[in-house]
Design a protein around this nucleic acid. Sequence first.
RNA 1: UCUACAAUAGCUUAAUGGUAAAGCUUUUGGCUGUUAACCAAAAGAAUAUCAGUUCGAUUCUGAUUUGUAGAGCCA
Length: 463
Amino acid sequence: MKQLLIHEIYQKEPIDQEICVKGWIKTRRDSKGGFSFLEINDGSSLKNLQIIADNSLKNYQQDILKLFPGASVKVEGILVSSPGGNQKMELKAESVRIYGFSDVTTYPLQKQRISFEKLREIAHLRGRTNTFGAVTRVRNALSFATHCFFQERNFYYLNTPIITTSDCEGAGQLFRVTTLDFNNLPKNKQGNINCESDFFSQEASLTVSGQLEAETYACGLGRVYTFGPTFRAENSNTSRHLAEFWMVEPEMAFTNLTQDIALAEDYLKYLINYILNHCKDDLEFFNLRIENSLLEQLNKIVSSKFITLTYTDAVKILSRNRNFSFPVEWGIDLQSEHEQYLTEVEFKKPVVLTDYPKSIKPFYMRMNDDNKTVAAMDVLLPKIGEIIGGSQREERLDCLQNRLKELDLHENDYWWYLDLRRYGTVPHSGFGLGFERLVKLCTGMGNIRDTIPFPRVPGNAKF
RNA sequence: UCUACAAUAGCUUAAUGGUAAAGCUUUUGGCUGUUAACCAAAAGAAUAUCAGUUCGAUUCUGAUUUGUAGAGCCA
């Protein structure tokens, strides 16, 4: 007997064939006509399969009438076309084997609405709900599409280290990695902790970005991308931040900022096109239940040509509007309200801002000829805000050394990064995309904690 | 971290300075090729924690904890 996933059944419609399905009960409705309707779901689709369990089944009284949401079953029978209105097919059961019952008095996922906040407290079970099933399938599709996109363009998938000893960007608080005994920390004469006896013989922490390591391999293999976890110990309590999140970071040798922007735009459109074509049911569900403008937003991103303008021009546009709570002047970092104004009021489409003042960007970005701005770019989306940040990297040794000095950073700490500029330096560029923010964009979920199976945030790393 | 708001049955919500109401879930009965079914009954709550005001606090005040939204930081 052929075992099928529910999504395969809806795809192939093997009517009148004998099949086997395994999954979890969503609901049971009994008919006094002498049978029960079981809705089962196996995670392969948003759709459930309706099972007809007749009371002539051996274990009808004993088992089937005790099936409640959450129970796991194997059903064998014949797939028939359904007389009911809401489904094309149903499975007429010849046998129902129960793997595990579910206690209806304690199982939290009954057929009733549960808030996302409550579901976060039972993250081990929320994957069984419609919403989190759909989020997980879309997240998977985006992940697969990411690899497809870069592989098709001859990028190598690169695994950069998760434990690092360099705070390269100087950005963000780091999570310390140590095996020292906290109750008996080794101290030197000055009273500071002596890291030489620690596991790595120096201070180590979880990575905040794989970019600098990715640059090293891009300057040898040409095109690489990373896709891995990153960690920020910032005390950020918002619906857009996680302490542990996944980042996609392509890095390309022999490219400038214009090519970097083009790649970013292609990548975003590729991803959205992919899910529009491969996750139709899930996206329609999100559009109906979660965010009514989702499909409109996604289609708009795919169909619009992104606007590119310099930070300086953006400041000119923003200066015309006096109604901001943070006044705009050249040199400030743009606030959320300013980004929103550009994407939602002024242009009403994705906007790529370029050439930011050097003072608000990290040391590795390439200095422009004006010596005031750097070759940076941020992709801003309506309603979402910044989703991609990138730049052309500084490839000139002397310029990079000057920047390190200006920012009071020590050359010694960046010796290997500087070596790339000493030996066969090339212009190169890249960007970073926060994967959970992408999932948020593509599902319409309001809180980033609901875009990753087990979110890590200040004060909470349960499960 | 800052600002605002919230916390009441298993879940989702209501109400009131005088110990709490409803829907869903559950149980029982009725009806039914049903489909987040329907009808009737039953069961189910020291109203987040700790103080204070008061004859009396779930309601007012303060603190704490947790959560949400926005801001900052950023992806």
